[in-house]
Amino acid sequence: MSRAPAMKCPHCRANAWARTSRELSPLLREIYYQCSDVECGHTWVATLEASRTLSPSAKANPAISKTLPSSQWIPTLSTAPKPVLKGGTDDQPSLFDESASR
């Protein structure tokens, strides 16, 4: 098995070891983890999923390309909607307003 992503035990926060893994599909892998703290002894299963394409493959598999979305659909900071602040007042001066007195 190639190196699995590092994780910490969700209970004691000690480092965990990936003991084994298995492929569930070309986009999904199950990883079995074990806590390194013998007094804790927690073991668990985590999943690793390919969620979107950042750079298209030069050897694209058509079956995968149809199911793995491109990252183009993710809004950027410039196109994301502006947050609506709650609890503020309209008469509060802006930090960036140069006409506000100090």
Rank of each mutant, 00 (worst) to 15 (best):
R19P: 00
S65W: 02
L85E: 13
A14Q: 03
L28C: 13
P5F: 03
A58F: 09
H11L: 15
A18Y: 00
K82C: 10
P26T: 09
T67A: 15
K82I: 07
E23F: 05
P62F: 02
G87Y: 09
A6K: 15
W73V: 05
P5N: 12
R29Q: 10
Q34A: 08
W17K: 14
Q34G: 00
V84C: 10
V45H: 05
Q72M: 05
H42P: 00
T89M: 13
S101H: 12
T43F: 05
D97H: 00
V45F: 01
S51I: 11
V38K: 12
Q34N: 06
E49S: 11
A100I: 03
A16Q: 00
L68C: 12
P62I: 04
T89S: 13
P81S: 09
R102T: 14
L48S: 01
T53K: 01
S36P: 02
I64F: 07
L95K: 05
V38L: 08
P56A: 12
R3N: 15
P75G: 04
W73M: 07
V84F: 04
K8E: 08
T20H: 06
T47E: 07
N15L: 10
P10K: 07
K82P: 00
P26V: 12
T53Q: 01
A14G: 13
R13T: 14
S101G: 08
A18E: 01
P10F: 03
P26R: 13
K86D: 10
S2K: 10
R52N: 06
R102F: 08
L28A: 14
E49H: 05
E23Q: 15
Q34H: 04
S55C: 13
G41I: 06
S78N: 01
A63I: 04
T53W: 01
V45P: 00
A60R: 12
S25C: 08
A100F: 05
R52W: 13
K66Q: 11
S25Y: 06
D91M: 04
T79L: 04
L85Y: 11
E30L: 07
R52F: 13
N61W: 04
P10G: 07
S78C: 03
K66F: 09
